[in-house]
Design a protein around this nucleic acid. Structure first.
Lengths: 344, 344
DNA sequence: CTGTTAGCGCTTTCAT
DNA sequence: ATGAAAGCGCTAACAG
């Protein structure tokens, strides 16, 4: 820990009391301009920085928030964390990141640890396993503000920030339809979280709006949480799809991992994309452009999601958690590349 | 911040003094067994958890360390952070992660912020721009232990943890040689950090040991920090390589990004891998197996690097930074897949 | 406008 | 073996 100067050092040097110095530094109205300037100058000159621990102890706030995500190991998460980080560090709030690794038990453990560690609020993107939210409602009952981001759920009432997954999925599907594809398969994720259900609904609505009959054979759900088995599951799903008598001409994938892995698998099976089968999927990967072929994606404003979620939380903390619950949905962006080009 | 019970709550309930309770909980020898048990039981029952701020303030230590990395946005970093996180959280140390984004100025800003925030020590993997380490030696002079991990440099004397990059590169090159390749190109990163220089040296040494003349035309340095220009640079480099009259038959890439991007580029140019050109590279990507073709890699024990670095730092903190400087190099692992198969 | 004082929760002398 | 008291650095109620 650093050995910087303290308020009392400044007070002694300037022949003032500690409280005067404190007030001067917080720009209190009750301090004379002259004194204020003197204190500010001295503080700056000697690189005064308030002791975080002392302030926290005194204020009963730690100026730190917990952030729980499934895993920091993907660009989408990293981008959201970046947004959170930027907003918080600008306001002198520390973030403590923990990973649930998609495990409910791990998530509960994280929550306990963070709570014990004295966070002022929690930002969480729940694990795919999570269906019971009592560990979060407990937190709320203890007076701690909780903001859900990215992955939402109707099983808990709280503040929420994510994208409009329904609309994003709808647009992706419509894009395929407009490019001449009618037989459109859908790969999704085997979870109850909004990211999955909303995207499925968007897909269905688009088909409906364009008078295309919904075919349950064209929809497959995979467990994307287990990298080891995902490849098998995906291979099986694709095989089944391609073996159908009414073979799909395009696929809309609902998650980052499904999108990239699907591209790889189709490639390996020797299928030409988009000639044999077109592909578009939710993904924020930086490699979309450089994949072979380049991958059409539904892109999410990840940085902004993180930023907004952090903003929500910090506002709640400042307002003593009195704001009414609110759900913010940001728009997605369709990025058309080679993998979903129209057939000639 | 949580409103848990405090020492004084326990003291009151048990009719003891605060100091007795404190000592009982830290298992002091000077407390009777009976009292100790009573206190421990009560504490457990009421979920007592020490107030971090109070303890920090008192001890002059924050029980938090700073971690600076280029970016959390890749699996290798995420894995190392995982190792750091595991070791620290088991010991009730918090980590504060900051990203330099490969920018020297950003890195300096991070260091200042962390120092002001009252960290007990710093774990850093320097940005590629960093050649001046005075911001770190300043920290050392202020008494703060600093541990370099992953990316080392000879320009600063401190504790260091990484892999044996020289040996890893040597083995990769030898692997190619053993598989019948003699004309071996090398793609590296345009920086002074050990990760780059040591890998280059390993490549050269392998050639030398097998009596293969070093050909400077076969070595290209790219700026992997700028994703926007990397693709161009890489395309140019590969074009130049393939246009040589003595065309290389294999490539050894020195970084994660170079390895995956190189594979993509070669693919797009219609070259067959490994028939037209073989490829092996440093990479920890989980996708190595699923790439087309699967990518031979030199794998680093990322989790272990993080764990050891954290262990080093926490030991230094505990020992008041008195340990002599030490450099720990872990072994890499050669993972042979399709992209570097021997020609028939 | 400025100073005095108390207290956040903890550890650690110094007493007993 | 236990307790009393001080103090880490800060803020804020209270007093002038």
């Amino acid at each position: 820990m650093n050995n910087n100067i303290t308020l009392s050092d400044i007070a002694k040097a300037l022949n003032l009391s500690v409280s005067t110095v404190s007030r001067a530094l917080t720009d209190s109205y009750q301090i004379g301009d002259e004194t204020k300037q003197k204190v500010l100058a001295y503080a700056k000159e000697h690189h005064y920085v308030p002791n975080r621990m002392a302030r926290s102890l005194r204020e009963g706030k730690s100026r730190s928030i917990g952030v729980i995500v499934c895993s920091i190991d993907n660009s989408f998460m990293a981008q959201m964390l970046d947004g959170i980080d930027r907003y918080c560090s600008e306001r002198d709030y520390q973030i403590i990141i923990m990973q649930s690794k998609e495990l409910y038990e791990q998530e509960k453990a994280n929550v306990s640890l963070l709570y014990a560690g004295g966070i002022d609020g929690l930002l969480i993107s729940p694990s795919y396993q999570t269906t019971d939210f009592s560990h979060l409602t407990n937190l709320q009952q203890a007076g701690l503000p909780v903001v859900l981001f990215d992955r939402l759920s109707n099983h808990i009432e709280t503040h929420k920030v994510a994208v409009d997954n329904f609309k994003g999925a709808y647009e992706a599907t419509v894009h395929l339809i407009n490019n001449g594809y009618r037989a459109i398969a859908h790969l999704n994720w085997n979870t109850q979280l909004s990211v999955a259900t909303e995207r499925f609904k968007g897909y269905q609505k688009a088909l409906e709006d364009f008078g295309i009959a919904f075919n349950p054979d064209w929809v497959k759900f995979c467990d994307t949480t287990n990298a080891a088995t995902l490849d098998e599951e995906l291979a099986t799903a694709l095989q089944e799809l391609m073996a159908l008598k009414q073979r799909p001409q395009a696929i809309f994938t609902a998650t980052d991992l499904l999108s990239t892995k699907c591209l790889a698998h189709l490639h390996q099976s020797g299928l030409r994309i988009p000639d044999d089968i077109a592909l578009i999927g939710f993904s924020n990967t930086d490699l979309a452009e450089v994949l072979n072929p380049s991958l059409s994606t539904i892109h999410q404003p990840s940085f902004e999601i993180g930023r907004l979620a952090a903003q929500q939380l910090l506002t709640l903390i400042a307002d003593n958690n009195t704001q009414p619950f609110e759900t913010i949905l940001l728009p997605t962006k369709l990025q058309v590349r080679e993998s979903s080009q129209a057939k000639f």
